[in-house]
Simulated scan of single mutants.
Amino acid sequence: IEDIIADVKWDKTVSVDRSSKEDSVFWFIDQENKEGQKYKVWFNEAGSVDVQDKKEVWGVLEGKDGETLSSIFKLNEQK
């Protein structure tokens, strides 16, 4: 997940109005400084993923990264 999030295309100028609740929320903890970063994600039908960080900056994952993140969360839902 760390490698996938590193590939998010962030855009600080975009403001997205998401009326739907996020599909998933997760925290990434930086082990070096023990600081947590919260991410909200919305999975799109086309395979892309919309991502919002705790500062409400929006980003998009497309292609293989979007599909991989989506499949990780779907696997966890099945358990």
Score class of each variant (00 low, 15 high):
32 E>Y: 12
75 L>W: 11
42 W>R: 02
70 S>V: 07
73 F>D: 04
22 E>A: 03
54 K>V: 05
13 T>Q: 14
69 L>Y: 15
49 V>L: 04
26 F>N: 00
66 G>N: 12
52 Q>E: 10
27 W>K: 09
29 I>M: 05
57 V>P: 00
35 E>W: 10
41 V>R: 00
36 G>Y: 02
35 E>L: 14
2 E>F: 08
59 G>R: 10
48 S>V: 05
59 G>N: 10
2 E>M: 04
28 F>A: 15
10 W>D: 03
75 L>R: 14
40 K>V: 02
68 T>W: 06
34 K>Y: 12
77 E>S: 12
12 K>T: 15
65 D>W: 11
78 Q>R: 13
33 N>I: 03
71 S>T: 12
18 R>K: 12
4 I>Y: 12
42 W>Y: 12
61 L>H: 07
26 F>G: 01
40 K>T: 03
59 G>H: 07
45 E>I: 08
56 E>P: 03
14 V>W: 07
59 G>E: 04
41 V>Y: 01
35 E>F: 07
42 W>T: 05
21 K>I: 02
12 K>F: 13
66 G>A: 09
44 N>K: 15
39 Y>Q: 07
38 K>R: 14
25 V>I: 10
23 D>M: 02
68 T>H: 12
50 D>Y: 02
52 Q>F: 03
74 K>L: 09
9 K>W: 05
53 D>Y: 03
70 S>W: 04
61 L>D: 08
10 W>V: 03
28 F>E: 15
70 S>T: 15
50 D>L: 01
11 D>W: 02
38 K>P: 09
78 Q>S: 13
18 R>S: 00
23 D>P: 01
16 V>M: 01
1 I>Q: 04
25 V>Q: 09
7 D>H: 08
79 K>I: 01
75 L>H: 13
2 E>K: 10
6 A>D: 08
62 E>D: 07
51 V>E: 09
68 T>M: 11
32 E>P: 09
79 K>N: 03
52 Q>Y: 04
73 F>T: 07
5 I>K: 04
4 I>A: 09
45 E>K: 11
57 V>Q: 00
8 V>E: 01
61 L>W: 11
66 G>P: 14
65 D>V: 07
34 K>F: 15
24 S>K: 10
63 G>H: 08
75 L>Q: 13
5 I>M: 12
53 D>P: 00
35 E>D: 11
32 E>S: 09
76 N>E: 14
23 D>E: 05
22 E>K: 13
50 D>P: 01
41 V>D: 00
69 L>N: 14
6 A>L: 13
56 E>F: 03
64 K>G: 06
